[in-house]
Simulated scan of single mutants.
Amino acid sequence: MKWIALVLCVILISLQYRLWFGQSSYQKIQLQQQKIQQISTENQELANRNKKLFAEIEDLRKGVEAVEERARYQLGMIKEGETFFRLLNKDPD
C-alpha cells in the first residue's frame, strides 16, 4: 500500500512540474496568448491602414478633385486664372 501511495505521489509531482515548468507550462501558454493578442491588434491596425490607402488610391484613380487637392497643398500649385495671396504674420518686434 505504501508503494502505491509513493508511486501516486511521484506521478502527481511530475504532473505538477510539467504544469508549472514544462514545455507547455501555464506561464508559457499565457505568454503565447498575449503575443497572439498583440499580433491580432497589430494586424487589425494594419488592415485599417490598408483600407484607407486603398480608398485613397481609388479616389486618386477615379476623381480629379483628389489629384487637384494634392497638387494644391503638397506642391503649391494654382489654377490658371486664379490669384494667389500670401499672408504673412507681422512680427511684434
Rank of each mutant, 00 (worst) to 15 (best):
M1G: 09
M1V: 05
K2S: 07
W3V: 04
I4S: 00
L6M: 03
V7Y: 06
C9Y: 05
C9K: 11
V10A: 12
V10R: 06
S14R: 11
L15P: 00
Q16N: 13
F21E: 06
G22R: 09
Q23V: 12
Q23N: 09
Q23K: 15
Q23A: 14
S24E: 05
S25R: 08
S25V: 02
Q27N: 04
Q27H: 08
K28P: 00
I29F: 03
L31V: 04
Q32D: 00
Q34P: 00
Q34Y: 07
K35Y: 13
I36N: 05
I36Q: 14
I36D: 03
Q37I: 11
E42C: 04
E42D: 06
L46S: 06
A47R: 14
R49Q: 15
R49I: 11
K52N: 08
K52E: 09
L53W: 11
L53V: 13
F54I: 10
E56N: 06
D59N: 08
L60H: 07
K62T: 13
G63L: 06
E65D: 08
V67T: 12
V67I: 14
R70C: 01
Y73C: 00
Y73N: 01
Y73Q: 04
Q74D: 04
Q74A: 10
L75M: 03
G76F: 08
K79S: 13
G81Y: 02
T83W: 05
T83I: 14
F85G: 01
R86S: 07
L87A: 02
L88C: 01
K90H: 10
K90N: 11
D91F: 14
D91R: 13
P92D: 03
